[in-house]
Design a protein around this nucleic acid. Sequence first.
DNA 1: CATCAACACGTAAGCGCTTACGTAACAGAA
DNA 2: TTCTGTTACGTAAGCGCTTACGTGTTGATG
Lengths: 332, 332
Amino acid sequence: MVTVYDVAQAVGLSIASVSRALNGQTGVSEATAARIVEVAAELGYQRNDVARSLVAKSTQTIALLLPDITNPFFPELVKGVQTVADEHGHVLLLVDGAGDRARVAASMAVLRRKQVDGVIVVASALDGDADALFVGVPTVFLDRTTNGPGASVSVDHEAGGYAATRHLIELGHRRIAHIAGPRDLEVSQRRLDGWRRACEEAGLPTHDALVASGDFLEEGGHRAGIELLDSGEEFSAVFAANDLSAIGFLALCAQRGIRVPDDLSLIGFDGIQLSRYTTPTLTTVAQPILELGARACDTLLHLIRGEESQSRIVLANELTAGASVRAIGGTR
Amino acid sequence: MVTVYDVAQAVGLSIASVSRALNGQTGVSEATAARIVEVAAELGYQRNDVARSLVAKSTQTIALLLPDITNPFFPELVKGVQTVADEHGHVLLLVDGAGDRARVAASMAVLRRKQVDGVIVVASALDGDADALFVGVPTVFLDRTTNGPGASVSVDHEAGGYAATRHLIELGHRRIAHIAGPRDLEVSQRRLDGWRRACEEAGLPTHDALVASGDFLEEGGHRAGIELLDSGEEFSAVFAANDLSAIGFLALCAQRGIRVPDDLSLIGFDGIQLSRYTTPTLTTVAQPILELGARACDTLLHLIRGEESQSRIVLANELTAGASVRAIGGTR
DNA sequence: CATCAACACGTAAGCGCTTACGTAACAGAA
DNA sequence: TTCTGTTACGTAAGCGCTTACGTGTTGATG
């Protein structure tokens, strides 16, 4: 391996000058700087960033922790993060499988040792007292609006739930069921809140039998759907707390011969790409996933630099029309 | 930051003993080792891996380069890689957007500086003379079976193309069109070869008008579909070189009122999750994507350790039944 | 009792780099 | 001339760690 020392020797100068020249710093004449750069190139010198990081106390590395990269929500998020990181000369460590607190704790230990400059964590499964895991490390939380250390970026889940439900109400639906996400997740709660607010405002029922909890995955949506359909409860529309749940429910409808949207309207949440490929395509509250990732990364970089920056960023959702909802005359 | 020096001081020993104790090495008595570990924990000592990497000349970091994480083929691949990396105490650097040679070159420069222990590259868009980018870095190529440095892991694309086409032939199809991938990609070529071999064996036509090239994305499948349908050429089945192309073609069929599989049978390649959500669900040649990633990582770790290992791994595909094909009586 | 291996531990070098500080040369001002 | 400021460069420390080698102590062996 060619080191600064080799270059210095080859060009007949000290390693200090070589370092300065190679980093475009002042303190070397232009002429010698040019010569140094040239010789370095000739020798095929490649800077060793681990040595540099040791003295600089910065690795130009950030980590993204998420529970499951195969969940179609995340790839786009990753892209948003990666793009911004890349633009700023940072590199992205991906930690998949950060599903529960224990896994996150283990990962954070590794990342601390690796001296990452900061982390972005998708807070899906983080209990309240997880804050300790992140002290001393610049951190941005996604989908976590509660107080706590670090910054957070998310959409307004309550508003999204409200918008989805309003949409159904405006189409004439009077009994709207809800397939919720995991009960302990803040985002589930907020989306549920939005549904409830819209219903109550319109004088529609919101009793427990109209709500079934899923797990934000297809299977949970399927199960919750069974619960709802078999409850004897009447409803003409379903608002699912995320697209995957909606898709699981859609499969159930297909199995039972329930036509969507003819017999039942369905609306999802997230706006994952997959929602455009189902039959019918899914009407959904789309999150600006790419932007979410980008903003998260941006915010993190600010945190790292110690700059001021807004610490609670809330982006807007957008209702995306699919073919899974339809207007109805009156209550069914 | 607490360093070995701090621990040494607190326990009244030298940093050498501390280092030995903390790494479970010989050279310290069990009693003192225990004391050191205890004190280190008390002080909240966290090893600094960048310092360690500097002397060890190993970062326990591998990189995965791929063109586009939002392509549904890749998340599962990432998971396969990540899982194995994690099991072996390595950490994963994800480089997205490694779409063309220039980007890969730039990324490799960064990764070299960062002293990654090895890289896995999805060779989608790598021209022949890209080999130089990887010299000196343990490298595993995915989907690249040509000779070259490093190891490679892939499925047998030719066999997959053959199997897909055979399947259609056995269902009675006599004129089978092919939507190919980008012409300069080896995998496209091999899948095309498989199609051709199966057709020729069965005495079926393989002239140029039966083949249209896409880009492995939906749009390309759509475009290629138009080309085929408007060519006046007759065919009762289409073998698309990957699922996304097939899905693009499927959308085209929907637009034109062509019923799949009633009017036309369609078979894809890859077995991405998305293929299970289309209408109809896609019959496809499934690659063991997760395993592909896992084996790639495994192989890379072997390379890094300098151990012997098979350098050209070829996994088997499996034809996965969907609802996009049907038998027909005779030639249409 | 002398010898020596085995063990526990310390000293110090060095991984490749950045950077504070020192020094010599030179130019301009008094 | 002398003083001062500026520029170009070198010296050396130090980032936090591992590890080759040296030293002193112990217990076993003859």
